[in-house]
Design a protein around this nucleic acid. Sequence first.
DNA 1: AGAGGTACCTGGCAGC
DNA 2: TGCTGCCAGGTACCTC
Length: 278
Amino acid sequence: MPELPEVETTLQGLLPHIKHQKMVQITVRQFNLRWPIPQNIAKIIKNQEINDATRRGKYLLLATDKGTLILHLGMSGRLKILTQPTPAQKHDHIDITLANQKIIRFTDPRRFGAVLWTTQPIDQHKLIKHLGPEPLNTGFSSHYLFQQAQKRNVPVKSFIMDSKIVVGVGNIYANEALFLAQIHPMTKAGHLTREQHKRLVVAIKKILRAAIKQGGTTLKDFLNSEGKPGYFKFHLKVYGRGGLSCFDCDTILEEIRLGQRSTVFCPACQLKAVPFEN
DNA sequence: AGAGGTACCTGGCAGC
DNA sequence: TGCTGCCAGGTACCTC
């Protein structure tokens, strides 16, 4: 499911219900997620107040006085606010009941998600400290991306999906951003011109902002914290459209596999950069 | 150090 | 209908 827009949508939906609320009861039904949930998590967070909820990349961070609860939705995770107790379904792994009687329910069929606890300053945490800049912040600029790309031989699509370079760009939006920037996904990162870096950064920001505005992309099963889908699906120009014709030029879109991920592009609109053109 | 592949897990779907 | 194999929105970790 979730790339940055979906995580951001989830966070914004959650915030008003959970901020400054005490976690009064925690039920864990399944401890085996991507990493085991700490056995004593319920004891640790019980009666802790959520001071704030923020996002770093695709990690959701619930800050308390004693530490931070780290949540990740993985591929199929979902966080929902229940206003009254509801029987747990098969993949409802965790319920956190708040002092206001609302319940945060974590559901994740594929169990690639994570629920962890840390007392470390969060930016020193193993999962967080190596993360690149937030794509919507000014730190993510064409100058920055150009510097990072020098001498890198990875395809640009893999490059922008690398969380050490920039966080939050998953497979859907990587495909879409490269189409918008008119860059071939196989182009080696180090071969992009400054002009292409500029277009790419603008495209990534534009796509992510638009997707957040639409409440994310629901392909199959993404639902926000209110159980509603996102509508960005209707704006996708290449993702999921391999073999269909390009909206801009009618050429048949090609679908290839790149780093085991499905990659769709227009062979006419998206040209490879010529090495050393810069 | 960088590039590429593997692993984690379930569900849905195409093909036989 | 039922089996098999493949694919899926992520990413840390392993090997070369």
